[in-house]
């Protein structure tokens, strides 16, 4: 018998099956992970899914592995400085493939459109998809269109699935103490641009999203043996990726506030809004874990690419502690955790 009196209201909710999906379940943070663990992994159990990487690795034959990834885009607003939902839906999926060590090859695109959506906006979005795919060197090979009744959608949602050829398998198991953490550029630009584009904040500033396909910059790094792991810090930002890395490896990550590239205007706006750029979404950045010996070479190659000119070494992997810690500008240290919920929902 369960002694009912000891059940907290929270547990009662669970017992009564009253839990509901909240906006935070889509944040990429702690709630998303709870959802994945408690519902999805409970029923969906393939070995390919289990590592929960950005892209799954599947065997085609003995010599060839493919990376497959899928992502849905529910961003608000649909058009923002530096991009739109179409460009984002290509870049996001291309980036998920390339950070998995794959050369992105093919994309599929699915549209869910709300009745009444302007044809000219759709055309603009599709033109962006085409331009972005072409410059990223990927082909759109199939698609799907559904329309829902007015007020049953939010303008347009896009899903893209990407397939690439794995040339450099990335495995977290290779990450070890002493490795370096590199970021390919300034952080928090996308989250800030979208926040500004939402009129609720009433801010006047010109921050563009960093939305970009990274395969051109990252593929050359596949040749460097010391490059061990990559991830694009989208929802939940740099902090969330590194907390996950720490949890998966059992190692600690120490990053430096002073070395973190943040645009002046982004820092200013985020101070005002009370958000931390470390938790804000990026759509054109990658975190790279590399051996100490290779870190100079990686930085040099990144800086030679227009998208990587602000690349910086931001931290170390260590066995001294577990979790993610930030060394602050004044030399203090504090623990960074996963965010419970997203401060800015529907960012991608």
């Amino acid at each position: 018998m369960v002694a009912v009196s000891t059940v907290t209201p929270l547990e009662q909710d669970v017992l009564l099956n009253m839990n509901k999906i909240e906006i935070g379940h889509g944040s990429g943070g702690k709630l998303t992970r709870d959802l994945i663990e408690n519902i999805f992994l409970k029923y969906l159990k393939s070995d390919e899914l289990k590592p929960l990487e950005d892209a799954a690795s599947i065997n085609l034959d003995h010599n060839h592995k493919a990376a497959v990834t899928t992502d849905s885009y529910v961003i608000r607003p649909l058009f923002f400085p530096g991009g739109n939902i179409g460009k984002l839906s290509v870049c996001g999926t291309v980036n998920d493939l390339v950070v998995s060590g794959a050369v992105p090859k093919y994309l599929t695109v699915g549209f869910i459109i709300e009745e009444g959506f302007l044809m000219k906006d759709l055309e603009e979005i599709v033109r962006s998809i085409s331009e972005t795919a072409e410059s990223a060197g990927v082909k759109i090979v199939t698609g799907d269109t559904k329309v829902v009744e007015k007020n049953k959608g939010d303008g347009i949602y896009i899903n893209t699935t990407g397939i690439g050829e794995i040339v450099k398998p990335m495995d977290l198991k290779n990450v070890s103490a002493g490795d370096k953490v590199i970021i390919t550029g300034t952080i928090g630009d996308h989250g800030t641009a979208v926040a500004i584009a939402r009129e609720e904040f009433n801010i006047d500033a010109a921050v563009e999203s960093d939305c970009a396909a990274l395969n051109g910059m990252l593929e050359p790094l596949f040749d460097i043996a010391g490059v061990k792991w990559m991830r694009d810090p989208t929802r939940g930002g740099v902090a969330t990726v590194l907390v996950e890395l720490s949890e998966a490896t059992g190692l600690g990550v120490l990053i430096s506030e002073e070395d973190m590239p943040v645009r002046e205007d982004v820092r200013f706006i985020q101070d005002m809004l009370g958000y931390d750029p470390l938790y804000l979404a990026n759509e054109g950045k990658a975190i790279i874990i590399t051996s100490a010996e290779s870190s100079d070479r990686v930085l040099e190659m990144l800086k030679g690419h227009p998208l990587g000119k602000d690349a910086a070494l931001i931290g170390n992997i260590t066995a001294d502690f577990k979790g993610l810690r930030l060394k602050t500008i004044i030399g203090g240290e504090r623990v960074l955790d996963m965010l419970e919920e997203d401060t800015l929902p529907r960012i991608c």
Binding site: D276, L326, T328, I329, I330, G331, G332, E333, R334
Partner: peptide, 9 residues
């Protein structure tokens, strides 16, 4: 104070 980890110093 909290975000700079000042107390730890």
């Amino acid at each position: 104070i909290a975000f700079s980890g000042m107390r730890s110093l």
